[in-house]
Design a protein around this nucleic acid. Structure first.
Lengths: 200, 200
DNA sequence: GTCTATAACCAGATAGAC
DNA sequence: GTCTATCTGGTTATAGAC
């Protein structure tokens, strides 16, 4: 019979168990629904136990942010489009919006921790995301770095914006809303590419 | 000597004073920084007094949302561009991003209250915002309602997305970041217009 | 309409035993 | 490394007096 989480944290894995549990709580009830006390209760440990592994609540949340960032990187990297540079860029956008839709609370928690004064480790974890957009945009900009930067940023904004509208319910609810958001984001990306000469 | 707010709420304006104070608190410290208790303290009334005017915290926050929505409507309406339909649409985007930048905490609180199950009064207050985008997009779409809807939504997403990136610090901080966000959002809008044939 | 007082609750964090 | 126990401080919301 396999080792359960309950078994492991008494062998020194409480730290990892806390991160997992925090992510579960956030996914289920939002950042607001997470507290050190609730995480402790769910794991069956004393409320003081987490403080052996994290100096405070924010330190645990930062670690959650890093883990979520890694999931996001995987999402934008995994979604493979066609061979053309345009299709690769569209695929990154799709992956981004799909992740935002499928992990709303975690994604919002990640954004909340990504302040300008965020932990360097968080920035580092997020770098491949920006790179995914930037690399595909570069392939579309014929060696003009400024044009690539402008296109990449505009496309990130489009992805982020469609995620935001999805959260507001602009596209409805449920699976159909997800597909609408992904489809519209992809179409907007194509429009940006087609009209990229106007980006300055 | 003019009547102060302290004077007024003893004459029946505590309700209005609470809304004002809630907006101040949110603007200063974010939604998290607002509480019924803190608002009461700031106004010098008992913590129970607000409950004569609002059944609970959420009802007050909904009212704050309505007021913030009205400010947003004014912002997107006020920013006048040139005479062309394209410049009017760009102007709406500018107004939206500028408002998001200048009233971050209130704007985020507004978005948080704008769930699919929000108060109808909130939806009504926000309708002119959507209309501002939609009307300008319609003028650019030569009588094709579907094309107008697609363009309008893509442009709203662009505005929302640039606001989001601004909050993440992607454009830096301070006044220069604001101008970068507004400028990039305007350029992206022009690119979307130029490439709108790809929107489907 | 506002007050005083209070109930009921939950959080973050620490001290010291084991 | 985890536990028990506790401190400190905060919140929403209500009851009943004025």
């Amino acid at each position: 019979m396999p080792t359960t989480r309950r078994d492991r944290y008494h062998h020194g894995d409480l730290r990892a168990a806390l991160i997992d549990t925090a992510m579960e709580l956030i996914a289920e009830q939002g950042v607001q629904g997470f507290s050190m006390a609730e995480a402790s209760r769910r794991l069956g440990v004393a409320v003081s136990a987490p403080y052996r592994h994290f100096t405070d609540r924010d330190e645990l949340l930062a670690e959650v942010g890093v883990r979520t960032g890694e999931l996001l990187v995987a999402a934008v990297t995994a979604e493979r489009g066609g061979d053309s540079a345009e299709e690769r860029l569209v695929a990154v956008v799709r992956g981004y919006v799909r992740f935002a839709a499928g992990h709303r609370a975690l994604f919002e928690a990640l954004l909340a921790t990504l302040t300008p004064a965020a932990e360097p480790v968080l920035d580092r974890a997020m770098r491949p995301v920006k790179a995914a957009f930037h690399d595909a945009a570069t392939a579309l900009s014929g060696g003009d770095p400024a044009a690539a930067e402008a296109l990449g940023m505009a496309v990130i904004a489009t992805a982020q914006g469609h995620a935001g509208l999805l959260y507001l319910g602009t596209f409805g609810t449920g699976e159909q809303a997800l597909e609408a958001a992904v489809g519209r984001a992809a179409a907007a990306t194509r429009a940006l590419i087609a009209g990229r000469a106007a980006l300055g």
